[in-house]
Amino acid sequence: SLSVDNKKFWATVESSEHSFEVPIYAETLDEALELAEWQYVPAGFEVTRVRPCVAP
């Protein structure tokens, strides 16, 4: 099958004044980091952490 098993990760994104967490959907932690950097670094943010979303 061609289905992709995307998992939810939380990326911590920082600017000079703010820090916030955004959801990233990817297959692996490395891919989540790449996606977060691709989305947020060009906008002037720094991705400081990516972690798996742990269900309660």
Rank of each mutant, 00 (worst) to 15 (best):
A26M: 02
A36N: 00
L2G: 11
W10C: 15
H18F: 00
V41A: 09
L2K: 05
A36S: 03
F20M: 08
P23R: 05
E21H: 07
S19K: 12
S1R: 05
D5L: 14
K7T: 07
V22T: 03
V41F: 06
I24E: 00
E31I: 05
Y40T: 05
I24G: 00
V47T: 01
T12P: 01
Y40L: 04
G44D: 03
D5K: 15
F45I: 02
V4C: 15
A43N: 09
P56L: 13
W10L: 08
T48P: 04
E31L: 13
P42F: 06
P52C: 05
L35V: 08
I24T: 00
E31W: 04
E17M: 11
A11F: 07
P56H: 11
R51H: 06
N6V: 15
P42Y: 07
T28V: 02
G44K: 01
E46K: 15
L2Y: 09
V54C: 10
R49Q: 15
H18V: 14
A36D: 00
F20W: 08
R51F: 08
Q39D: 04
H18L: 13
P52L: 11
K7F: 11
A43M: 15
A32K: 02
P52K: 05
N6I: 14
T28A: 02
E21A: 04
H18A: 11
K7A: 09
E27V: 09
E46G: 04
S1Y: 08
S3F: 08
Q39V: 13
S15T: 08
L35H: 04
W38Y: 12
V47I: 08
E14V: 14
A43F: 14
L33S: 05
Y40D: 02
P56Q: 12
C53G: 07
W10P: 00
F45L: 04
E27R: 11
T28D: 06
A43Q: 15
L35K: 13
V4F: 11
I24Q: 00
F20Y: 08
P52V: 10
E46S: 10
T28G: 05
S3K: 10
C53H: 12
S1W: 10
S1Q: 12
A32P: 00
E14G: 06
W38I: 13
T28W: 03
V13G: 00
S19T: 11
V54Y: 13
S16C: 08
D5H: 04
